[in-house]
Structures are given as C-alpha cells and as structure tokens.
Amino acid sequence: MSDAPALRTRLAARGFDGITLLVLPAALLIAGLFIYPFAYGLYLSFRPKDGSVFGNYLKFIADPYLYETIGRTLWLALPVTLLNLFFAVPVAFRVRLMHRQRLLTTILVLPITLGTVLVAEGMLNYFGPQGWFMRSLHLIGLANFGSFRLVHNYWGVFISLIITGFPFTFLLTLSYVTGIDPALEQAAATLGARAMERFRAVFLPLLAPGMAITFCLSFVQAYAVFPSAVLLGQASGETRVISIAAYQAAFEQYDYSMASAIAMIMAAVQLVIVTAVLALRALAYRGPAGGGKG
C-alpha cells in the first residue's frame, strides 16, 4: 500500500498517468493496421513461392516487365512533381497578395476532394479525341482532330497528375508562403531589393525547407499513381507503373509474396528519393520564418 503512491508519483513525474493512456488505442490501431502489415509484408516478401529467400527480388531485377516499372513511375512522378512545384511557387506568390483567396482555393481543392477516379472519367471526355479541349484547339487552328492524343497514353496520366497534383502542391506551398512575415519583404524593399532580389535573397532561403517537404509529399502522391495510370494510360505499356505491377501480382496472380516484395521495393525507392531531398534540406536554414520575436 505504501509503494503504490510512490510508483504513481514516479510515473507521473515522467509524464505517465491516466491521461497518457488515452494514446494507447490509437497507437495499437496503427501498430496493428500499419506497422504489423508492413513487417508482415517484408517477411512475406522473403518467402517466395519458389522457396528461396530472395527469389522475388531476383525475379524483379531480372524481369524487364517488372523492373522497368520503376523507371516508368519515376519518369511520370519526377517531372510532374517538379512542374507542379515550379508553377505553384509563382502562383502562390501572387495569390498571397489577394484579399479574396477563398474562391480560388475552394476551386482548387475540388480535384483533391473528388479524387483521381472522377478526374479520370472527366478527362476521358474532356481531353478525348472529340472532347471540348480538342475541339477548342481545332477551332483556333492549333490542331487537327486525330493529330495527337491526350488520353490513353503517357500524357493522359501526366495531365491527370497535374490536375490533382498541382492544387495539392499549390495549397501546401501557399501555406508556407503565407507563413513568411510580410514585413521581411517590406524590409528588403526599403533596403533597395528589387522583386527578383527579394525573392532570391529573402524568400527562397526561407521557403527552401518547406519546398523540400512539399516536394516530398507531392512526389509521394504522384509516385503512388494508380487509378489514372490504369484509366488514362496504357496499363500494360508506357504507363505500367510500379503500383500496377504490385496490384496485378496480388489480385490477378494471387502471389501475395511477390506483391509484398514489389510494395517493399516501391517503398524503398520512395524512401531513397525522400531521404535525398531531406538531406539537401538539412543544408538550408531551418527556423522560424518570422522577422522577430513576435
């Protein structure tokens, strides 16, 4: 009896009491539905059907139909992410000065909310050979019907990743840009810095860490492209991305071991790129983007 309060006191001193226990259900849920499946997937990936340990991974490296998916995925995800970021920054800089941003941000949040499947369905019509986009191009004399296609190929997936990815990148960038104290720009202006110089000397260094995070999150989204690669691309050809390979292994060949191996490879490639970007970020200034204590 005399020990009980002492133990409670000692635990409370380290921050453990009844309230702390409230974190457990959520932690157990994530452990059970995220950590465990990942660990199990990793384990399963080393238990291929042929009984060896690295069979799945060797098969992946040996089969161009499989290993080329990495290149195809990156060939979509990297340019799209960079392009989105490249356009998001200047637009965010303009929108930052707007008084009524709400309408624009609301419109831009639509494709994120509606998701890739709906955008794919809309694009099949809108960007299709007889869709409004092609008709408009034809009308102003930029293209003839049938001279090129914007769906069922690389560009279909590319455009869909821009349409769902740009708003995401933009809204994230906007939240970083508006986090920078406007007085910093004013200070730079009074000190003689022109718009370009203000951007280069003040905004860019302060934005860089946020841009690294934005790049990673946007890249990860684009990298995991799945429904639009199937619906708008050529699922067995130039847009056979890695998630399609993993899906087919699991749900068409019922080879869960192979599917897990592909998922692990997918996670690993992603990790390599994200780590590289975050390592670059470590070189930049990281700290408050405010002008003072305030």
Binding site: F38, G41, F226, S243, S260
Partner: peptide, 15 residues
Amino acid sequence: LLVPSVTFGIPLATV
C-alpha cells in the same frame, strides 16, 4: 500519412 496508401494498402490487404 507520409507513406502513400497503395504502398501500405497491398500488405494491409494481404493481412
């Protein structure tokens, strides 16, 4: 939140 859903979805579906 950082790992895309397809990546963890396949092992999760397996489990």
